[in-house]
């Protein structure tokens, strides 16, 4: 027996196909796999292991032995000045106050370690600035920039903010002096030309004789550890560099590309104008309104910093009272 025509469909089809099971639906493909009980078991076990593996991969990070900190959440700049423990205490107080006032105004932090705090052995005390910077980074792990400012310098214009003055990426890119001999006048090693402002880790200036170490910025990070530790190497400290750490710095900058590549050279009067001393002929001399008034070498031999700074300091302190 056969039919000439297929049976008719109902003339009132249901609007949607009826659901076969209640509760959450299993997609038909999966249901097909799960039809067989043993197969379903295998799928279940495999799925479990896959889940386990995925989760294990996600949380697979090892735990760090030291606490992690976020750089940039603390004070944006830490001002570091090393203090000679034999210096005149009144003068030291005034120097400290000069920096503290400035820091308070802009929300920076300060750090005044003694040069005797660090294991310098027989090397000159001016080397203390290197471990002092590293120490400041240890104490302020959340700050980004560390400004070493020698005790022979004064902040002469406290209204200037460091970020807009130097540290901002675009500002720094504009300021960088490129293709300039690292050691004037004619070193064959010249500053790199195509550096990005946010990849710079050390900012220095140049006076008439070479790189200045009495005012410099170092950015916190792994590179800073490398830079400071390499700079502080006992071989350089015991080597008879004429100007100690300043010549050691010039040496590592010229011989090691990984240091030169992170260095920005900026005009001297931005943060290291000289009142006395071998200022850069182009832009090193102090003029009114400069951020820094520096008296390099005033702590040496027969000179007296307190005396030399007195007029500038008095003027500054008078201004503050107004």
């Amino acid at each position: 027996m056969h039919f000439a025509m297929p049976p008719r469909k109902t003339s009132r089809p249901p609007p949607y196909a009826a659901r076969q099971s209640r509760g959450f639906g299993i997609p038909p493909a999966l249901r097909n796999i799960l039809r067989d009980r043993s197969r379903g078991l295998v799928v279940l076990i495999l799925g479990f292991f896959t889940l386990f593996w995925l989760l294990g991969g996600m949380s697979g990070g090892e735990r760090s032995a030291v606490k992690n900190t976020i750089v940039g959440s603390g004070a944006p700049v830490v001002i570091v000045t090393t203090i000679d423990p034999t210096a005149d205490l009144r003068w030291v107080e005034r120097i400290k106050k000069n920096r503290e006032d400035y820091a308070k105004k802009h929300g920076y932090a300060t750090f005044f370690p003694s040069t005797a705090d660090y294991p310098l052995k027989k090397s000159p005390p001016s080397w203390a600035k290197v471990p002092a910077l590293r120490h400041a980074m240890t104490l302020n792990p959340t700050s980004q920039f560390f400004w070493y400012l020698d005790s022979t310098a004064l902040i002469a214009n406290p209204s200037i903010s460091l970020q807009s003055h130097i540290l901002d990426k675009s500002r720094l890119e504009k300021l960088m002096i490129v293709n300039e001999p690292v050691v004037p006048p004619d070193s064959v090693i010249k500053t790199f030309g195509n550096l990005k402002g946010d990849r710079i880790d050390v900012i220095v200036s140049q006076d008439k004789e070479g790189l200045c170490v009495n005012s410099l910025f170092v950015k916190q990070g792994e590179w800073a550890k490398y830079f400071l530790d390499a700079w502080f190497d006992p071989i350089y400290r015991s080597y008879n560099f004429q100007k100690a750490e300043a010549h050691a710095l010039e040496h590592i900058v010229q011989w090691h590309g990984t240091i030169l590549a992170k260095l920005a050279l900026v005009p001297q009067d931005l943060f290291n104008s000289y009142v006395t001393g071998p200022a850069s002929p182009k832009n090193g001399q102090y003029k009114d309104g400069d951020l820094i008034a520096s008296f390099p070498g005033c702590d040496k031999e027969k000179r007296d910093c307190a005396e030399e700074m007195e007029p500038t300091l008095a003027k500054l302190e008078g201004k503050d009272k107004d």
Binding site: R63, A65, V66, H135
Partner: peptide, 19 residues
């Protein structure tokens, strides 16, 4: 042992991670 060094440098095992 120098006190001026950061905790990671002063740790005997660095940060302890294999990476």
């Amino acid at each position: 042992a120098d006190e001026y060094l950061d905790p990671e440098t002063r740790s005997a095992v660095g940060d302890g991670k294999s990476n």
